[in-house]
Amino acid sequence: RGPPEPTEPAEPAASAELGGSDDVRGPGGLSERDRAVLAVERRGWPGPGAKERAIREQLGISPTRYYQLLGALLDDPRAAEHDPVTVNRLRRIRAAKREHREG
């Protein structure tokens, strides 16, 4: 019986797709992956499936993980400093959805 086999991460590292570690902080204190998530969200998407495909291909993560990261970014003041237009727009959309569910 040998040493245990190393386990693969649940998601491929986005850093491989982005050319660096997602722990590397850039201007404003956001990681390269955080900035890439905001950039994907900033784009317009032509139809269903295109955004999810881009998330997988460009970021190397699942759409579910993408939306988890995006949700955390909306609560991060560094994200609002980096891209206030996108973050504030998404915060308004999130607040409207919450209000609709509760109301």
Score class of each variant (00 low, 15 high):
Arg65Val: 04
Leu73Asn: 03
Val87Tyr: 13
Glu17Thr: 04
Leu74Gly: 05
Thr86Tyr: 05
Gly60Asp: 06
Gln68Pro: 00
Arg53Ala: 13
Ser31Met: 11
Pro3Glu: 15
Ala39Glu: 14
Glu17Pro: 05
Arg42Trp: 13
Leu73Tyr: 01
Leu38Trp: 09
Asn88Ala: 07
Leu69Asp: 02
Leu69Ala: 01
Pro77Asn: 04
Lys97Trp: 12
Trp45Asp: 02
Pro9Leu: 14
Glu11His: 02
Asp22Glu: 14
Arg43Thr: 09
Gly103Glu: 08
Glu41Cys: 02
Ala16Pro: 03
Gly44Phe: 13
Thr7Val: 10
Pro77Phe: 07
Ala14Leu: 14
Ala36Phe: 08
Thr64Cys: 13
Leu38Ile: 03
Pro48Tyr: 12
Glu52Lys: 02
Leu90His: 03
Pro3Ala: 15
Arg94His: 11
Leu38Gly: 01
Arg98Ile: 09
Asp75Lys: 01
Gly20Val: 10
Leu90Asn: 07
Leu73Val: 03
Arg25Ser: 07
Glu81Trp: 04
Ala96Met: 15
His100Cys: 11
Glu52His: 04
Val85Thr: 12
Arg56Leu: 13
Val24Gln: 10
Ile93Glu: 14
Glu8Arg: 15
Thr86Ala: 13
Asp34Tyr: 00
Gly2Trp: 10
Ala50Ile: 10
Arg98Thr: 09
Leu18Gln: 06
Gly47Lys: 00
Arg35Ser: 06
Gly28Ala: 06
Leu73Trp: 03
Leu59Lys: 10
Ala39Asp: 15
Ser62His: 01
Pro12Lys: 11
Glu32Cys: 11
Gln58Leu: 09
Arg89Tyr: 08
Leu70His: 01
Ala10Ser: 08
Gly60Pro: 08
Ala36Gly: 11
Glu11Asp: 03
Arg65Met: 12
Asp34Pro: 01
Asp76Gln: 05
Ala72Phe: 05
Arg33Trp: 05
Glu102Val: 03
Pro63Ser: 09
Gly44Trp: 13
Leu74Gln: 05
Gln68Ala: 05
Pro12Asp: 13
Glu11Leu: 01
Asp22Leu: 11
Ala10Pro: 01
Gly2Lys: 09
Pro84Lys: 04
Arg43His: 15
Gly71Thr: 04
Asp83Gly: 07
Asp83Ser: 15
Arg78Trp: 05
Arg78Gln: 12
Arg94Pro: 12
Ala54His: 02
Thr86Arg: 09
Gln58Asp: 07
Glu32Gly: 07
Arg65Ala: 15
Gly2His: 09
Arg92Asn: 10
Arg42His: 13
Leu90Asp: 14
Ala10Cys: 05
Pro4Tyr: 01
Tyr66Ile: 06
Arg89Lys: 06
Lys97Cys: 13
Arg98Glu: 15
Glu52Leu: 02
Glu41His: 00
Leu69Thr: 00
Glu99Met: 12
Arg43Ala: 14
Asp34Arg: 00
Gly2Arg: 15
Gly26Tyr: 04
Gly60Ser: 09
Pro77Trp: 06
Pro27Leu: 10
